[in-house]
Amino acid sequence: MPKRIRILIAKPGLDGHDRGAKYVARALKDAGYEVIYTGIRQSPQAIAKTAVQEDVDFVGLSLLSGAHNELFPEVVRLIRENGGENIIVFGGGVIPDEDIPFLKEQGVEVVFTPGAPMQDIIAFIEANKERTAH
């Protein structure tokens, strides 16, 4: 039996806007994935540690405070450093279009901005789940 896909939804930094993160976490759960949600105000270190320890396939980072350029790349770096080579990182939140190329360069595979439908997020996970091979 194939392993169920595990997804960590995480809130790095000091931002408390968690409506989107919680919605995505719950909707992914309803779509049949195993989902872990960190709660707000997590350090990049704590997120990376959880991602590796929990052996997740995907990490979804949510941030609305504008600190994404600093915090998203740091989470990716720490995940890799801790042995999570195959974990796919994606992001969401209030993120200007012009920041997205930089984030992609830094290892954030895709960024979902306000109004993105849930089916896009699920389609992304389905299209990439094979790559997180164990």
Binding site: L14, D15, S65, G66, E70
Partner: peptide
Amino acid sequence: EHSVGEVGKV
């Protein structure tokens, strides 16, 4: 150290 990236943002 907690303030990294967030100073002056919101």
